[in-house]
C-alpha cells in the first residue's frame, strides 16, 4: 500500500524543485485573499484585470531574466532595456512604423552581440549588462528626453482590450509562459541553454558550441525584453526610459521566487510566472492596506525576504 502511495506521489526530488514555486503560490493566494477581504470587487473580472495588468510586463521581463539565468548569467540591464523599448514604441514606431520595427529588431540583435561579447571576452555578465544598461538609458534619453509620446493605435487597443469572460492580462502571461516553457524546457534549444548553465565542459565534449548556446539565450532574452516593453507601453500609453528601472532586480527576485537558481542549469517558466505575479501584487496589497507610499518599498522588500525565507525553510525540510 505504501509503495502504491509512493509511486502516486511525486518524488522527493521533484517536490524539492517545485517547492519554491509552491511557496510563492501560497503567498500569492494569501495576498489575493487579503485583497478580496479588503475590497471584494477584486475577485470580479474587472478587478482582476486591474490588479493583474501591472504584472504582465514584469512577468515577461522576468522570463527574459530566467532565460539568462538558465545559462548562469544575470542581466542587470533588462529594466532600462524595457524602458528604451517603450521609448522606441512611443516615438519611431508611431512616426515611421518600418523604421521602428527595424530598430526593435536591431535591439534584439544588440542583445545577441552582447551575449557573444560576454562569452568571447569572458566578461562577467553582471558587469557587461550593467554597462549595457547605461547605453540603453543614454539611447532612451537621446530619443525622448522627457517622458511622453503616444503609442501606435494597435498597441493602444491591445492595452485597452477587455474581453467579457476572463481577465485580459491573464492571456499574455499564460501565452508567453507557455512559449518560454516550450522553448526552454521541451526543445533542443532549451537543452543547449540549460546544458551550458549546468556543465559547459560536457557540452563542449559533445561537440556543441557554448558560444552558440549563449547567443541563443541572449537573443531570446532580447526578444522577451522587447515584448515586455511593448506591453508596458500599451499600458502607459507613452514612452519613459526610466519607467521600468525597478525591473532590474525585481526580475531576479521573481526568478528566485519561482525556483530558479543563480548557478544556472534550471528553467522554471511557470514558477517565474507565479513569482512575477506575486511580486507585482505586493504593491497592490500595500495600497489597499493604506501603507504610506514612502514606506511601500521597505515593506515590499520585507515581504520578498519573508517568501525567500519560506523557500529556504521548505527546501531544508525536503532535503
Amino acid at each position: 500500500m505504501s509503495e502504491l502511495l509512493a509511486s502516486a506521489l511525486p518524488s522527493r526530488a521533484r517536490m524539492r524543485r517545485t517547492a519554491p514555486a509552491v511557496v510563492s503560490a501560497v503567498a500569492l493566494a494569501a495576498m489575493v485573499a487579503v485583497c478580496a477581504s479588503l475590497q471584494s470587487d477584486v475577485l470580479s473580472v474587472g478587478g482582476l484585470t486591474l490588479v493583474l495588468s501591472a504584472t504582465v510586463p514584469l512577468v515577461i521581463a522576468a522570463q527574459a531574466q530566467m532565460t539568462l539565468m538558465s545559462v548562469g548569467d544575470i542581466d542587470l540591464g533588462i529594466g532600462t532595456f524595457v524602458g528604451l523599448v517603450t521609448v522606441v514604441s512611443a516615438t519611431t514606431l508611431v512616426t515611421s512604423p518600418l523604421l521602428g520595427v527595424l530598430t526593435l529588431a536591431g535591439l534584439i540583435a544588440a542583445y545577441a552581440v552582447l551575449g557573444a561579447l560576454i562569452h568571447l571576452r569572458r566578461v562577467p555578465s553582471l558587469i557587461a549588462t550593467l554597462g549595457a544598461s547605461f547605453v540603453w538609458l543614454g539611447l532612451g534619453l537621446f530619443i525622448l528626453p522627457t517622458p511622453g509620446g503616444s503609442t501606435p493605435e494597435w498597441l493602444a487597443s491591445f492595452g485597452s482590450w477587455a474581453p467579457a469572460g476572463f481577465p485580459a492580462p491573464l492571456l499574455p502571461i499564460l501565452v508567453v509562459s507557455l512559449v518560454v516553457y516550450l522553448l526552454s524546457s521541451r526543445s533542443g534549444l532549451g537543452v543547449r541553454m540549460r546544458g551550458l548553465g549546468s556543465n559547459p565542459v560536457a557540452l563542449e565534449r559533445a561537440g556543441m558550441r557554448p558560444l552558440a548556446s549563449r547567443v541563443i539565450a541572449y537573443t531570446m532574452a532580447g526578444a522577451l525584453g522587447v515584448l515586455s516593453g511593448l506591453v508596458l507601453a500599451s499600458q502607459t500609453g507613452g514612452g519613459d526610459v526610466s519607467s521600468a528601472t525597478s525591473y532590474q532586480l525585481m526580475t531576479v527576485a521573481a526568478v528566485i521566487l519561482g525556483g530558479g537558481s543563480f548557478f544556472g542549469g534550471s528553467a522554471v517558466p511557470w514558477g517565474v510566472a507565479i513569482g512575477g505575479v506575486t511580486l507585482g501584487l505586493v504593491s497592490v496589497v500595500l495600497s489597499l492596506l493604506d501603507v504610506p507610499s514612502n514606506m511601500q518599498s521597505a515593506v515590499q522588500g520585507v515581504i520578498v525576504l519573508a517568501v525567500l525565507a519560506g523557500r529556504v525553510v521548505v527546501g531544508k525540510v525536503l532535503r
Partner: peptide
C-alpha cells in the same frame, strides 16, 4: 562523467 546534472537522462543523451 560528462553529464549535465540539471538535465534529465534523456536530455543528456540528446546532447551527446
Amino acid at each position: 562523467t560528462s553529464l549535465c546534472p540539471d538535465l534529465t537522462v534523456a536530455e543528456n543523451i540528446w546532447v551527446s
